[in-house]
């Protein structure tokens, strides 16, 4: 069979990618308090502790609020940027788009530190709101990347055709462009949501005393006793990510099928 060696390599690579993650459920359901082999026995106690933990619940609520808000903000801003960059020529376009996309190639610590310095200097109280601001900034380039692909795959004459058939520019956008890029919008929302939910650095420095899931996890990693609960939390997070990505993939494929394009597969 063609590429047999390559296939074996690719499968080994996938196993390497997934192996550490597979440890999560193993130890999340292991009754031993120490993360070590051999396993002791099956328990759901850690999940119970997780649900009962008030700080964790607060962190979870905070993370949800942050992720929902910043994904909506990033996607809305992303629609403007993606539409502008795919449809219009304007002076300074490469520089402007470069600035907006910059967080993609900027180490997060720089974004976090510079934002922190400014926020402290102008006396803004650190809260989940400041995290939302930071997360919107770093989610925006990802949203734009996804939305630009969606806008780009549209034939420009579709819009002109709607306009030619008597619609106004706005109703042409609403009736033709919006439904066709809707799968891209949903993907961008889900992607931003996932990024925000997982983001640690900015949340760590900009949240003040408010916990988010990643900063809560980070704070607990020092305590060996807390690790099994973190393992169960990690399990929940991984499952959530997979569910969200599956939904995102579903919408992406539906978008592809709807407009009758060839499926090239994958995000980005």
């Amino acid at each position: 069979m063609k590429g047999g060696g390559l296939r074996a390599y690719a499968i080994a690579y996938l196993i390497f990618l997934y192996a550490p993650i597979l440890l999560l459920p193993i130890f999340a359901f292991n009754s031993g308090t120490i993360i070590a082999f051999p396993l002791k026995g099956f328990t759901t106690e850690w999940f119970g502790q997780m649900v009962a933990n008030a700080t964790l619940r607060r962190a979870f609520t905070n993370s949800l609020i942050i992720a929902v808000s910043s994904s909506i903000m990033a996607t809305c801003l992303g629609i403007f940027a993606a539409r502008a960059s795919t449809r219009f020529n304007f002076p300074g376009k490469p520089g402007i788009m470069g600035l907006i996309m910059l967080p993609l190639v900027l180490p997060e610590i720089i974004v976090a530190m510079s934002l922190l310095v400014v926020l402290l200097a102008i006396g803004v109280q650190l809260s989940i709101f400041t995290v939302i601001l930071g997360h919107t900034l770093i989610c925006l380039p990802y949203a734009i990347a996804i939305l630009s692909t969606a806008f780009n795959s549209l034939d420009k004459s579709l819009e002109e055709a709607a306009y030619d058939l008597g619609e106004t520019k706005w109703s042409a956008f609403r009736l033709v462009i919006l439904p066709l890029v809707m799968p891209g919008i949903v993907s961008a929302l889900l992607m931003s949501f996932t990024i925000s939910l997982d983001e640690f650095i900015i949340a760590f420095f900009l949240a003040g005393n408010e916990p988010t899931l990643p900063t809560y996890i980070f704070s607990q990693l020092r305590f060996p006793k807390a690790i099994p609960v973190i393992m169960s939390l990690g399990t929940v997070l991984v499952v959530m990510s997979i569910v969200l990505l599956t939904i995102a993939e579903y919408f992406r494929r539906r978008g592809v099928a709807r407009t009758g394009q060839k499926d090239h597969g994958g995000f980005l």
Partner: peptide, 8 residues
């Protein structure tokens, strides 16, 4: 030229 048929 591309017909611009609305695919949705």
């Amino acid at each position: 030229q591309s017909y611009a048929i609305f695919p949705h």
